[in-house]
Design a protein around this nucleic acid. Structure first.
Lengths: 202, 202
DNA sequence: TCTATTCTCGTACGATGTACGAGAATAGAG
DNA sequence: CTCTATTCTCGTACATCGTACGAGAATAGA
């Protein structure tokens, strides 16, 4: 399956590695053959997103405690996005929801039933939670990537330290100095794969 | 100024219009001259983001009520991003904060002082609020763009209606049918309005 | 078996970011 | 003022991207 190959590629080497040529090579087909499967790359990305969304299967029915259920939903999404670190970026442009996404949405709507919100509001809550988790995980991933390249982390640390030392940013100075951990990465559920570190500069 | 030209271009024609050639033409210089100003396009984007962040000037000092202050901060950011609709996309990759961003961060840190959070947590709160607002506004903008092209909106509406009619998505069916508005764009006029009041306390 | 239809995909085109280095402009020294 | 050295400007060129086009291969129908 073309979509699966594209997903594997994105998982292994990042979203930038997903080019039509590369996917075609991975599948063992000509480049233009992909266009009989998806009319353009944008659509292929949609297919990828929905494909991995198939992993978002919820077994337990809503408990009735929508706050707790939403927490579970968000945790599920976070784990999902950590497993596919390209997801936050792929979700950053609006996409029409595929069947797997709709199945998950169906569950979230059921979770939200006790809130008494109207339909539009529930849909909005879903979109907002997804966006929030995406932003959170994107931050997590970026942070981890920075920490992984010590020179960049050091450069940024020096830069911020210099700013903090200029006297115009007392709050920042305090925030950076106070605890032992300056900018700690948090424990992530699974070790997640990472695209090769680009951007040598700075 | 090169950055200002790039910002004007992005404001007028979107982030995709910001190409090195285009910016150079706008400034009346050769393409490669831009590279004596910023080492690469990524950096130019950083400069653009920080440039417009200069508009985020906060006059009032923190009131002491950090919830209210954070609400104000978020509203300010939202108005800012609606004024520069390319911002959410530009913020989606991690950037090192420039001076204007740092000035704003300084204010948010002051706002967060009464929370008693440690420095790292405060920084995280800032990042999360920014990411959340970016996601929110991105959704708003995308929604508005969809509504603006009636054929696409109709196609999506038909698609969702078909899914809702298949019997496997009762919650979705109800969510789409219930109120008069199926997927309504919200009012995003200049005096920043308030999305319908939700349960505030958490 | 011959024709018609569909599928596959090699080639080519217009973008893009940017490396390279030739020329223009400026500065310093005599 | 002249000549050289240094810096700035930027035209050209290249690799890479998405994808339009249409020639050939494969398949189906008669």
């Amino acid at each position: 399956m073309i979509t699966a190959a594209a997903v594997a590629l994105a998982d292994a080497e990042g979203l930038d590695a997903v080019t039509m040529r590369r996917v075609a090579a991975e599948v063992g087909a000509g480049v233009m053959s992909l266009y009989s499967y998806a009319p353009d790359k944008e659509t292929l990305l949609e297919l990828m997103v929905d494909h991995v969304s198939g992993e978002l299967t919820v077994t337990d029915p809503p408990s009735g405690d929508w706050r707790a259920d939403l927490k579970t939903v968000a945790r599920l999404q976070r784990a999902h996005m950590l497993r596919h670190p390209w997801l936050p970026a792929a979700l950053s442009t609006r996409r029409v929801p595929g069947p797997n996404t709709l199945a998950f949405l169906e569950h979230v709507l059921a979770v939200l039933r006790p809130t008494g919100l109207d339909g539009a509001a529930k849909l909005e809550v879903f979109a907002q939670i997804t966006a929030f988790v995406a932003g959170y995980v994107a931050h997590e991933i970026a942070q981890a990537a920075v920490s992984r390249s010590p020179d960049r982390a050091a450069a940024e640390g020096r830069y911020l330290a210099a700013v903090a030392a200029d006297g115009c940013h007392p709050e920042l100075a305090e925030a950076l100095s106070a605890p032992g951990r300056p900018l700690t990465p948090r424990r992530h559920l699974h070790p997640f794969p990472q695209p090769p570190d680009r951007r040598p500069r700075y």
